[in-house]
Nucleic acid binder design. Structure first.
Length: 487
RNA sequence: GGCGGCGUAGCCAAGUGGCUAAGGCAGCGGUCUGCAAAACCGUUAUUCACCGGUUCGACUCCGGUCGCCGCCUCCA
């Protein structure tokens, strides 16, 4: 079965067929480094991280380029506000981005090129566009002539007439067509500047991606990705620039992910309804954020709320609890004992990799893939639960294999990286700290309660249990004594 | 106005032209327990926004209506 994914260009789920057998060339638009990243940026990074992990799992070699926009109006403005240089500001937020990515366990792309390090390539490409008659100079700026490019608007499904009728276009006397966009902008005093044949200035936004993707992936490559908001104008403009300059077809396929919303509105800087990655990670485990992100298909909107994050937390706990229970069974079991697993159980576990792959092959359907994992967890829990004191070695083996498979597949989603028992313990310690309780104090209360229970003093026993429960401590009476966990 | 998408149980969320409409969270009943908790088992949509059409058969395809969201300006 081939991998299929939705291609914005064809509006169809196409079969993945790289230009070079077994090798995928992927370019993704990264961030503009002028502020801390919010969870919308996190979703973008996570979505492509998952896609790359999966494609590698499927045996492809992936060259993954994700750029940084480190020169831009927003950076210049923010730098001036804070008294830093644009370069310093960009460096600072690139470093912050890397910290965030590391905490989210997002694997590094093959390369992370920066616009400012590719000005030569950018200038060369602009010159080519001028020479070929696709661009013109005006007062130290250079603009791209959209009506010279035959297929302009094809990716986003628009045409120039409609867009101009829509009319929210800034008036600019220098442009021949209001839809023309800047390839090169002359610099004002105090702004970062590079020499060019058209005078001192800096690159426009769109051209950097055309120049950098060409430098590292060639004129034509397999997949170009980014957020849905980049389809127009950014990606439309990239196509126009690159195809006009090279005469080759640009990216074969385009992958665009959906937005993170809050109360069903797009999270964005301008609306002010955003949460930074670091803010969210103060309250939740990185893996909780991952599970939350991948519980919905990557092209759909993802609505952030504390309720949704608590759901994800409960889900992650369920996964780790299952693995920890299995890890707790250390023996090898008996060959004579009767198996408690049914053939159906064995099949469910055995077919997991196949079903997981089928879901992922279908446009990286992580929500469905996770569903299959949870189904297996249910089966494993059932078996763990039914295990007698002297379990069958066959069953223990099935449990171990099931846990191993789940851990391996979950790695594509980027969860279940921790040791399950440590995860449970760490979580316990953290919650204890929050509840301002020590293990010793709890143990002491438990022994007092055990004594009360031995005397069948249920009133006192329940009193202690309720007291702890009020502080979020659940007691669990088992055959080997009382254990506790934080709720 | 143009373009695109979405509307599935209390909430989140997959899915398919006909086989039981996954899974998670929450709830309820049960097993277990002195009572609980955890775990497990069972249960919660005869129905997939609404109205028509195509079809032997549609939630899935087509048309329309309503509602929500996004892009068309910087945006992941």
């Amino acid at each position: 079965m081939p991998v299929r994914f939705y291609n914005t260009k064809t509006r169809n789920k196409d079969i993945l067929q790289p230009q070079t057998e077994g090798h995928i060339k992927l370019y993704v638009c990264g961030i503009t480094a002028y502020d801390y990243c919010h969870i919308g940026h996190a979703r973008s990074a996570l979505a492509f991280d998952m896609i790359v992990r999966y494609l590698r799992y499927r045996g492809f070699e992936v060259t993954y380029i994700r750029n940084f926009t480190d020169i831009d109006d927003k950076i210049i403005n923010r730098a001036q506000e804070t008294g830093a240089t644009s370069e310093e500001l960009a460096e600072r937020f690139i470093a912050a981005f890397h910290e965030d990515m590391e905490r989210l366990d997002v694997k590094s792309p093959t390369l992370e090129p920066k616009a400012t390090e590719h000005v030569d390539e950018i200038i060369a490409m602009i010159q080519t566009l001028i020479n070929k008659g696709f661009a013109y100079q005006a007062e130290g700026d250079v603009y791209y002539m959209v009506d010279k490019f035959e297929n302009y608007g094809q990716l986003s499904g628009r045409n120039l007439e409609d867009m101009q009728a829509g009319a929210r276009i800034t008036v600019n006397e220098e442009k021949r067509n209001p839809m023309d966009f800047a390839l090169w902008k002359s610099s004002k005093p105090g702004e970062p500047t590079w020499d060019s044949p058209w005078g001192p200035g800096r690159p426009g936004w769109h051209i950097e991606c055309s120049a950098m993707s060409r430098r590292y992936l060639g004129d034509s490559f397999d997949i170009h990705g980014g957020g849905k908001d980049l389809i127009f104008p950014h990606h439309e403009n990239e196509i126009a620039q690159s195809e006009a300059a090279t005469g080759q077809s640009f990216a074969d396929a385009w992958i665009h992910h959906g937005f993170v919303t809050i109360k069903d509105e797009k999270m964005s800087k301008s609306l002010g309804n955003f949460l930074t990655i670091r803010e969210v990670l103060e309250d939740y485990e990185p893996e909780v954020l991952r599970l939350f992100v991948f519980s919905t298909h990557y092209r759909n909107p993802l609505d952030y709320s504390s309720a949704a994050m608590q759901d994800a937390t409960a889900g992650l706990d369920r996964l780790y609890t299952c693995l920890a229970e299995i890890e707790g069974h250390t023996g090898t079991g008996s060959d004579d004992a009767k198996s408690v697993a049914s053939q159906k159980d064995v099949d469910t576990i055995g077919l997991l990799p196949e079903r997981f792959q089928k879901a992922m092959d279908n446009d990286f359907n992580t929500a469905q893939a996770l569903g299959h994992i949870f189904e297996s967890v249910k089966v494993l829990n059932k078996i763990t639960q039914a295990l007698p004191t002297e379990p069958a070695s066959k069953d223990l083996l099935l449990l171990k294999q099931g846990a191993e498979t789940i851990t391996e597949l979950a790695d594509i989603i980027g969860v279940l990286k921790k040791d399950p028992i440590s995860y449970i313990n760490e979580k316990k310690q953290q919650l204890l700290k929050d509840a301002n309780l020590s293990s010793d104090a709890i143990e002491q209360m438990i022994s007092e309660r055990t004594e009360a229970r031995n005397q069948k003093n249920w009133a006192r026993s329940d009193e202690i249990r309720d007291e702890l429960l009020a502080k979020g401590i659940d007691l669990k009476d088992g055959p080997e004594g009382t254990t506790w966990k934080v709720k």
